[in-house]
Design a protein around this nucleic acid. Structure first.
Length: 271
DNA sequence: AAAAGCCCCTGGATGC
DNA sequence: TGCATCCAGGGGCTTT
């Protein structure tokens, strides 16, 4: 499910409320992608300082150490004063004096990992190869072009890989390429500097727009406040196979790249 | 080094 | 109604 916008919307929906909270207990359900890496009782008594985001990871800073949290394909967080007993897909509860933080994740591709610090091996393993943050000032169009030049793979897959720029998943890769007028199959190395600049701007624009719309709710995404997103209603191509392009009315096409669906307009997007 | 495939897992939609 | 098949927002790992 969650790409950068959904993760950021989640972060914004509980970061301020949980900051300063004291952890009282932790409950772990079924195994997620990796073990928590520390005995759950080791978190008791620690204080939540802040919640940051790196790519699609949430970093929950504690007074000692941090939790790295990933929502995988189907994960969502809820943070509330009281919650019903955990259901079969609620795999992590962190009870604090300000409320319960709960991870709901039917497919269990998500993860909760404890690390003693950002330089600790468990953290470096997950964060070490991530590319630049697209909504930060450090995302530079010329450097982005230089990075694309070094890659021979189709540009859609370079966006998804996350080692050049983070946070762009399957929805927003298709959307950004539409906004930039670039075919998803075009080899990254063949993108000119001006077109790379267009794509750079498109990535920033689509992600920021999606954050402002509360993310995309395809099935069941909601923020930690329980609010659904509505970016999906304004998607230009994602999920619109056969429907008319919103710009030129050519039917939107689908193709498969690396086992994922890609959506594009054959008229608006050029090789 | 980079690219391409595989796989983890569950549930919902579709088709026979 | 029942059952099989396909598909889904990610990404680490292994193989080419």
């Amino acid at each position: 499910m969650p790409e950068l916008p959904e993760v950021e919307v989640t972060r914004l929906s509980f970061a301020d409320r949980i900051a300063g909270a004291r952890i009282e207990s932790v409950r772990v359900g079924k195994p997620l992608r990796w073990p928590l890496c520390c005995p759950p009782e080791g978190l008791q008594g620690r204080t939540v300082l802040s919640v940051r985001r790196r790519g699609k990871y949430l970093l929950i800073d504690l007074d000692r150490g941090l939790l790295l949290l990933h929502l995988g394909m189907s994960g969502s967080l809820i943070f509330a004063g009281t919650l019903p007993g955990p259901g079969p897909h609620d795999h992590f509860d962190m009870v604090t004096d300000r409320g319960i933080l709960r991870l709901h994740d039917p497919r269990r591709f998500g993860a909760v990992v404890f690390a003693t610090g950002e330089d600790a091996p468990e953290a470096v393993k997950l964060l070490g190869r991530l590319g630049v943050e697209p909504l930060a000032g450090s995302f530079d169009a010329l450097q982005f072009h230089a990075g694309l030049q070094r890659r021979n793979a189709p540009v859609k897959q370079v966006l998804l890989a996350g080692d050049l720029v983070v946070g762009v998943g399957n929805i927003y890769a298709s959307e950004a390429l539409f906004l930039a007028g670039i075919r998803p199959t075009l080899r990254a190395s063949r993108i000119s500097r001006p077109r790379a600049a267009r794509l750079h701007a498109a990535v920033q624009r689509v992600l920021a727009d999606a954050v402002s719309k509360g993310g995309s709710t395809l099935r069941d995404f909601s923020s930690a406040q329980g609010e659904a997103g509505h970016f999906q209603l304004s998607a230009m191509v994602y999920g619109r196979t056969g429907q008319p392009c919103r710009v030129c009315e050519t039917p939107v096409r689908t193709l498969r790249q690396g086992q994922r669906a890609t959506f594009y307009c054959p008229t608006c997007q050029k090789h």
